[in-house]
Structures are given as structure tokens and as C-alpha cells.
Amino acid sequence: MAETPSLLQVSDISLSFGGVHALTDVSFSVNPGEIFSIIGPNGAGKTSMLNCISGRYQPNKGSIVFKQQELIGLRPNDRCTLGIGRTFQNLALFAHMTVLDNIMVGRHHLLKNNFLSGSLYWLGGARKEELTHRAEVENIIDFLEIAHIRKSIAGTLSYGLRKRVELARAVALRPDMILLDEPMAGMNLEEKEDMARYIIDLNEEWGMTVVMIEHDMGVVMDISHRVMVLDFGKKIASGLPDEVMAHPQVRKAYLGEDDEPSEPATESQLSGEVA
């Protein structure tokens, strides 16, 4: 195990907000090429964990090493450049931009033109570069089947489509590791199946390591290589999907008293948000 260097090594991360301990001494590692899922009840600290990795939150202690480099202390934009992309649980698109421009923003760190060459557009080679990247973006648009909305203003789209555009924007970064925060929340069965297919393709064909938070246990069991369970900010189990599900503490904490208490709550809550 120790021989293959992990892509992401999280060690002893603790994070608190005032008196709330969002995360307590959480450690785990993600191997290159994996689909790694983080599950746990509402408020367990899953999103907080992703925020620590992508740099939105500064943990109180611990270390996060990505590709042998310490991330703590780096700004979110520098972590992006290192190869970390993400989507958000509460959508975070650029609402007044077109879908196309949203995705083009994902190319930001790969583009070289700046305000000078960009303003001169035809003269400094910016046009050529923009068009090359535009072609890349069109590939992503085709892959995620959003060609019909490429000129739509992002803020006017339905919830399911916005989730897909967010994924497209994160994919456009060409990250080595993509963090997905509840990519299927609020979706119907068909949309979920599409999303699961996209994630598998990203992992297998595009070579992206996936770290995913998801409440739908069916999907988690189907597509994850390994699973970690958080509860009240603590890691209570991790391993292969079946192992984790068999873990008594997990059954108690997550699947709980009467089968699935937290999941229907989340679903209805989110579909309420959509309507």
C-alpha cells in the first residue's frame, strides 16, 4: 500500500467554526485513478472537507498533500493550477454569462493571452489561442450533451442543466483530480444515470481521479472504488463499498434507526429548492 504514492494525502485535518467542530482529525488518501466517495449524514463535514482541499477553508490543523506538494497555505487559484477542479453543492455558475463563456472560464489557467494581447485580439495571436481552446470546450460540450444550450445565459437554465454546466466548467480545467459535491442532488432517475455515466467516463477515459460526495447510496455503491464515511466531523469508516456498508457503526450512524433517515430528507429538501 505504501509503495504506490497517493495522489492526495489528507492528514489529521481539524476545522472548527466557533464551537462547532466541523472536522476532527480526519485522515485519508486518494490513489491516482480512483473514484473515491465521501458519504455521511447532513452536517457531517463532507463539504467542509472539500473546502479544505480546494482552499476555501483553512483548517485549524493538519496537512493536505497533493502530488507531493503541501496545499495548506496555497490560495485556491494556485491549487486549481496544480490540477484540482471542483463543482459546488449550491450551484456557483457565473449567472450572467453564457454557458460557453462559463466553460471558457475553466480554461483560464491554460490560456496565455492577457489584457494586452486580448485587447489586440487579431494582432497578438489571442484569437488563434481562443479559437483553439474553444474547440476543446466544444469537445466537452459534446461529451456532456449540452450543445443546445451553449448560447443560453447560465442563470436562466434549469437546475439539472446548471449542474451539468458546472461539471463542464470543472472538466474544462483539465484537472488531475475533480471534486464533485453532490453531483446528482435533485435529479430524477434518468438524469442520475446520465451523470453516473459521465463520471465513469471522466474517470476511465479522461483519466481524472474523482472525489465525490453523494447521498444516493445506489450510485455510491455502483461507481465508487473506495468510500469514506464521516459522521459529526469524524471519520468512522473507510474501505471498499461493501466493507463500509457492512460496518456496524456506519449502519447505525448513516443508515440509522429506520433504514434511511437522512436521504429522503435531503431529497425533498433539494427538490423543494428546485421548484
Partner: peptide, 8 residues
């Protein structure tokens, strides 16, 4: 916030 996560 999301601009920053996008590398800006």
C-alpha cells in the same frame, strides 16, 4: 468565490 476556484 467560484472564480477563485477556477484559477482566477
Amino acid at each position: 468565490l467560484s472564480a477563485e476556484i477556477m484559477g482566477i
